[in-house]
Design a binder for these strands. Structure first.
Lengths: 338, 338
DNA sequence: GCTGGCACTCGTATGCGCCGAGTGCCAGGG
DNA sequence: CCCTGGCACTCGGCGCATACGAGTGCCAGC
């Protein structure tokens, strides 16, 4: 167990290192924070902290930098999420309120997050599974061609083309549309499969094939497009860490393009609360020197997707967490209103 | 006027420099290309080329590198677009054929282009103005709330929410839907405004407000969403030019995020054929050390949008142009089929 | 348990000299 | 007239050796 002062030393090290991006020594520490003890004492504490694996020296005769474990302790026990200032809050609200549709909300959110945190922002589109159906529309584009349009309560729209096994009349289509909507409108996506299970049986034999085709496409859409889209912004901020270039930046850019990777990471925690993954806690290798701060957001009380930022492990955790949390709240409000 | 051999020297310089990324000297040139003359002669030619502004030396006693003007001449008169190999073509086709919808086509195209050229790929979504309307759908979500869904011949879908000034009945909605579609289905977007101009007049006074609201939203969508979306991929390839880091990469990333900038650049030339913008020919400052190779693509014979790559001015122009052209063709085919 | 002092480490910055690729110029030859 | 080989010159990059200084660990004393 670490003494209170040692924790304070760790906190000071993290804060200074994040600020200066340079290994911090005992003398500088005592000067910048009034710990009430001499450098020599701090040195002893540092030796202990290093022993425990919370900090490390890049090389002998250099200052210390926090390890992933050190950041972890800092985030868990030493840091308080920094609330945004009132002007910042107002700015967020104003900026988001100008959005005209879901795409716009997401696009604005990404820009906002990237600017606020000066890091790479990631916003997941409201996921389908956790949303509800607002409406299902069927359009006949050709005798044996139907377009399926799915509209969710978050305003998201998905469409698919369906080639019918047999020509399908307008009246049958209207019939199917009506019955489909009466069953699934307002229901959760996860419930849809069992709600439509027996639908084909109530149709004439000749139409049954098409009805099945439509239904299976609908179910496919629910599964495939599930949590699929992700928008990323602020990649230019990666260049702020010009030191370790380009060894660091390259794998990060690659990981960001592999949206699957990010989606998996975001989806890992079901907890809609704030999650911080530090360095090697990220399964993906390219992100081993980055931290990801994410949080769920949603239109109601419930989280429908996540958003967050990706930055170097040496990030300003309190500030970043504050910004992420605030943005998530406001986005939730905006979605609830629309 | 430059002699034939001097042009060959320029071509050789461009080729070598692109390959080695290092200034090329007279001796190396004569060794790698059999120009049939001695280094001394080449030196004279180089002096002349430098005089004319086609090449430059980074510093005295170094080899020459092409200037923007040199690349321009190379692209215009010295380079032949390199066709892809048969296996490459097959790979493209296979890869694109797996796409399930428009989003997927675009996403795959970006990845493909980025991989083929090992540069940053940019694909513009099929633009609205040049496409035709496949269908307009109106959904009543609440008594005074209508959703407008617009489907284009390229499979693109746009939706908008409309708050009606007065409640709007299902029958009126069906009526409007039918009349709207009979007028605009299959027509070009640019023609839509005049086609619907007199539509409100044929409705009852009580509905006229809503009809106008719907129409103005439709027209808004045509204008606002016009050529708006852009997908970018392969940014990790920027790190291949690790030399001039990060001074070069940062403004480029910033420019790429400012989609408006790119859209403007892509839209500059109305010519649907291949366009190459080299270095300072790009109006945007951040892209002054990059070249953009773009070409129009479309479902029919007509171009509906552009795609291309952004790379360093020292890029393999013949190969890049070949890849861009080939991808555009195959995407066009895929779009025509769907 | 804290403190001041002290010797030691080691990475970085600085200065210097060498090397070699590349150049420009010139006189001679086809 | 153009090409060629020769030659002196330039200048950036690289290796090396040195100096500097921040930071450490340890120890004796309070």
């Amino acid at each position: 167990m670490l003494s209170e002062r040692r924790l304070q030393v760790l906190r000071a090290i993290v804060q200074d290192y994040v600020g200066t991006e340079e290994p911090v020594g005992s003398k500088a520490l005592t000067e910048r924070h009034n710990l009430g003890v001499s450098p020599a004492t701090v040195r002893n504490d540092m030796a202990a902290l290093e022993e425990e694996g919370y900090i490390a020296q890049p090389h002998t005769s250099a200052g210390r930098i926090p390890t992933d474990k050190g950041y972890r302790l800092f985030v868990d026990r030493l840091a308080e999420i920094k609330p945004l200032t009132a002007p910042e809050r107002r700015a967020i609200q104003n900026f988001l309120e100008g959005a005209v549709d879901l795409d716009d909300v997401v696009a604005r959110t990404v820009r906002l997050l990237a600017q606020l945190t000066r890091q790479v922002a990631v916003v997941q589109y409201p996921s389908l599974t956790r949303s509800t159906v607002r409406h299902v529309e069927l359009l006949s584009l050709a005798p044996a061609r139907v377009m399926l349009v799915l509209i969710t309560d978050t305003g998201r729209v998905e469409q698919r083309m369906i080639d019918c096994p047999a020509p399908f009349g307008e009246t049958s289509l209207a019939d199917l549309r009506a019955r489909l909507n009466s069953r699934v409108a307002g229901r959760r996506f996860t419930d849809v499969p069992q709600l439509v299970e027996d639908l084909p049986e109530s149709f004439d034999a000749e139409d049954r094939g098409t009805v099945s085709a439509v239904l299976s496409t609908l179910l496919e859409t629910l599964v495939e497009k599930n949590e699929e889209r992700l928008v990323i912004g602020g990649t230019a901020n990666l260049t702020r860490f010009a030191h370790d270039f380009p060894l660091t930046i390259r794998p990060v850019l690659e990981a960001l393009e592999e949206q699957v990777v990010l989606l998996k990471l975001l989806g890992e925690t079901k907890d809609p609360g704030m999650t911080v993954r530090i360095g090697h806690e990220n399964a993906h290798e390219g992100l081993n020197s980055t931290s990801i701060v994410s949080v769920g957001y949603g239109s109601g009380g419930e989280a429908v997707a996540k958003l967050g930022v990706v930055g170097p492990t040496r990030m300003d955790y309190p500030g970043t967490m504050g910004a992420v949390r605030a943005v998530a709240r406001y986005v939730g409000q905006i979605l609830a209103e629309s």
